[in-house]
Amino acid sequence: MIRVRPVYFSMKIISKLKASIGCIIATLGVSCTSTTVDEFRQGATSIEGDESVVILGRRQASDFETKSDFVECVGERMGEGENAISVIPEREFIDAMFPWFEPRTAPLRAGDLEQLLAEDVVAQKMNEFGIKYMVWVEGFTETTGRTGSISCTVGPGGGGCFGFGTWEDDANFDARVWDVTSLKNVGTINTDATGQSYLPALVVPIPLIARVETNACNRLAAQLKDFVNGE
């Protein structure tokens, strides 16, 4: 008797787990993301093997700032796979160029680069890095339409949550590409990713998050890679 009960119990758990996994997979299909990429080209582009690109986040706005994680993600994706591009990490570049690329001192227009490169120390560092294109990324992810509620209780015998929550995430990012040689803006790429996230809770909350920022990052990086390679 004593040996049978644990087997029956674990069978019950397994069948519950199977049902839960089925539910999760079914819901995951719903919490998808849609991404739109727009490209506006203003000049011809190409890059050689010994040249590199730097991707920088804009941080001048008063109420938001471009997350460094997103900028890092775009840089990493551009440096991977076919036609990979050498990308200088943002922090390494900003520290090496200190204090010329801080939020208050960074150039706002491609034309401002001329004045900046007139400084010997800046021009020398830029040559050392071998930078052909400077990409300025600006944007943020906004969460809207939060609905539903979840209540959790904890007692001496255990605890649990019950309820349902949902919200929509919208990641909108612009990338402006500056040619460091011609000192001109050669193009702009806009990425907009939206997705609905769900948080059902039946004893344990199961977050089903729409990965809008990851999708925006992947699509923006792929488009930027093609853009810089002149495709």
């Binding site: 200190f98 204090p99 010329w100 801080e102 939020p103 208050r104 001192t105």
Partner: peptide, 13 residues
């Protein structure tokens, strides 16, 4: 730290 870097940049430049 960002504020201190801002001080350094505006002061030095």
């Amino acid at each position: 730290i960002v504020a201190l870097r801002d001080l350094a940049s505006s002061f030095s430049l």
